[in-house]
Design a protein around this nucleic acid. Structure first.
Length: 305
DNA sequence: AATCCGGGGGA
DNA sequence: TCCCCAGGATT
């Protein structure tokens, strides 16, 4: 089945309104694409923008990242969250230098073998660095495709598998880069999860869901609630995530070469952490050690080298 | 299949 | 203030 009308509408809109000026869209350098995709997995474009510029300036090449210390990479990751990804990105760089001759592969199997690269990132690298006709499918893309082809996504009319197959079939031959870029921009700016702007959508005349009324979308969402884990009862400040964040932030600020004892760290962070036993604190530190973020020695704690 | 992993923006 | 956000690894 052909989707020529969809292709024409979205690609024309991307040409007019797309964010082709984003630094990771102006380049085809696979290393930069990889860095941007690692950041964009977890962060909005506006925030990733600043971090990206600083990161590629500090680590301008795969080789420079591969030879950098994990500590320096984690320091450059400040503000982005999910710090284990900084560790994986650094490990990925070393893997590429050692096993792939310093080049980013374009085949899916090789990409998927790399730390931190799953189905989405592998496809994104193929589309954005190599302009291959692959579909980088995240939840935003699934939502957009569902609306186009099946109508409102509450309740779902198609499985994730079906949507993935549809999304792949939609990629116009030879236009992988622009198509994926346009799809993401549409999902971020117009075809949003809540309050989509159908009235200004370039696809509205070819969309099964348009026009979506914000109030009825909200009502449909409430009628079909997504299954949720038992609600987190403790305040965020009591959560492990918060403690981990405070610890890593404190270790980021530690002068290179310096270390801090568990007891001193516990005492320093006490004002932010409230009453939390040293034992409980130590368990959180252990989780950071397991994640490769923190190094523990007789001299104390620091970001891992 | 379910859970963990941050930090921020917007309703 | 509360709700929501997203891919990958682990178990």
């Amino acid at each position: 089945m052909s989707h020529r009308r969809l292709h024409r509408l979205l690609l024309a809109w991307y040409g007019r309104c797309g964010r082709a000026h984003l630094p990771w869209r102006k380049t085809r350098d696979p290393y930069r694409v990889l860095v941007s995709e690692f950041m964009l997995q977890q962060t909005q474009v506006d925030r990733a923008l600043l971090a990206f510029e600083a990161f590629v300036q500090r680590f301008p090449s795969l080789e420079s990242l591969a030879t950098a210390s994990t500590a320096d990479v984690v320091r450059m990751w400040k503000g982005l969250g999910y710090n284990a990804r900084a560790v994986r990105l650094k490990l990925l760089a070393r893997t590429l230098m050692e096993r792939f001759g310093g080049a980013v592969p374009s085949d899916e199997a090789s990409l998927r073998s790399l730390p931190g690269v799953g189905p989405y990132t592998a496809a994104a690298v193929r589309a954005f660095a190599f302009d291959l006709d692959d579909a980088a499918i995240d939840t935003n893309v699934r939502r957009v495709v569902h609306r186009w082809l099946y109508g409102l996504e509450h309740p779902p009319s198609a499985s994730a598998r079906t949507l993935d197959a549809d999304a792949r079939a939609l990629v116009p031959k030879g236009r992988g880069h622009a198509w994926n870029s346009g799809l993401m921009d549409l999902g971020a700016a117009i075809c949003t999860a809540r309050a989509p702007k159908c009235s200004i959508c370039p696809i509205r005349t070819a969309c099964a869901a348009a026009p979506i009324d914000a109030a009825s979308l909200d009502a449909a969402r409430r009628r079909h609630p997504r299954r949720r884990a038992p609600q987190e009862i403790v305040p965020f400040e009591r959560s492990t995530r918060y403690v981990r964040g405070r610890i890593v932030d404190r270790l980021r600020a530690l002068p290179p070469g310096k270390r801090v004892s568990l007891l001193d760290l516990h005492r320093e962070l006490e004002p932010q952490l409230g009453e939390r036993s040293i034992g409980e604190f130590g368990i959180v530190v252990e989780s950071l050690v397991r994640d490769g973020l923190v190094a523990k020695s007789g001299a104390g704690l620091a970001l891992r080298d």
